[in-house]
Write a protein that binds this DNA or RNA. Sequence first.
DNA 1: GCGTGTGAAGAACTTCACAGCT
DNA 2: AGCTGTGAAGTTCTTCACACGC
Lengths: 222, 222
Amino acid sequence: MSPTGKNADPTGNQVPAATVARLPTYLRALHLLIERGVGTSSSSGLAELSGVSSAQLRKDLSFLGSFGTRGVGYNVEALAESMNRVLGLATEHRVMIVGMGNLGQALADYRGYDSRGFKVVALLDNNDGVIGKDVRGIVVEAMADIDAVVERERVSFAIVATPARSAQDAVDAIVQAGVRGILSFAPISLQVPDDVDVQAVDVGSELQILAFHKQAREMGMA
Amino acid sequence: MSPTGKNADPTGNQVPAATVARLPTYLRALHLLIERGVGTSSSSGLAELSGVSSAQLRKDLSFLGSFGTRGVGYNVEALAESMNRVLGLATEHRVMIVGMGNLGQALADYRGYDSRGFKVVALLDNNDGVIGKDVRGIVVEAMADIDAVVERERVSFAIVATPARSAQDAVDAIVQAGVRGILSFAPISLQVPDDVDVQAVDVGSELQILAFHKQAREMGMA
DNA sequence: GCGTGTGAAGAACTTCACAGCT
DNA sequence: AGCTGTGAAGTTCTTCACACGC
């Protein structure tokens, strides 16, 4: 999960991968509380909003530091800010989307990047029918120019939204261009060097997991 | 992860959640091998394609039954078929997409459902500007009609692609209509009854995990 | 008194290593 | 001889339960 096998937090300690995966959820819950004007929350309140146990939440936070006040709870804003720092969101991260089909365009249109620390700075495709097109103020460029684009825009992360058959080639080019974090929506297992970090999302796989659970439910009843 | 906390396989045993999450990956690898005309594969060959260790793959398969031949390996087609059965993909599952914004339309356009056992049979939205529109041969219907749609189309699963603010309402309606498996793309934690199964995908959260790893990498080097 | 922070216990998952079948 | 299937060992993750500080 981690490229190095080590997840160092700002104090140099190790953070379990399972904990890292939950941090964004906690941050979402905190933003919700801020919106609602809640100033303080207990671990159980925050945990319920996040869908985990209060013990789990406290243990997770303990890997990052000590943020609460005994007998009181957590200062919502202060915790959100600490968590931002831990997640490395203090500075904006620059994202490139590769593959401008339906999904790529939908991802380019997504409104949620800014509020969560990301900015889409480049769009790439290898299809002449799309290259040059303007999508939400960004002109789609050619895959062939990827090295120049990554350098010019100082891209940190790439989102892969190509068809399955071209995804591995796209990833090879992305890695070659120096990007070390990839979010892939392509329904294949990608091969990357050890120092590159891949998060994969596959709609078909998620549905198949639902199908398994449904079947388990139905058999459990028989 | 599982609604009941128990994952019964066809023989009545328990399958760990972590194993269930990997089964779709194995199935993808098997389809790749079938395409390539490979008839037999060892656990290590299949594992490499799937990005896991051979011991992991053998252990995972052992929860489902005994599919290989010692000294030889696995018959690719037979294993794919067994896995289809285990995952409950023998019959086609009927899917409804709720929320026809950019993402919903991109998901409706996605070509990968059929080959993986799913069929999109209904599209819903609560915006008059979209209701009645034809998307790939399916007319978008009103959220208000959800109960009738679920019954008429015998919907098994719902994909939620609404904005965050309306996602919980959409999920409540989906559950009320009798659907027990939900794949959500909304960036919020959803509250559902215990017997409803939710798989959640959040682009922002995935990017934040990448950001954490990047930060850990950079601090680890200092 | 109250809720956090945390060692310790327990559960789940992964890896090891080899017996057993072909 | 070779590769699967699997108990056992090892690791990671979760839950428990209580000491600690407000």
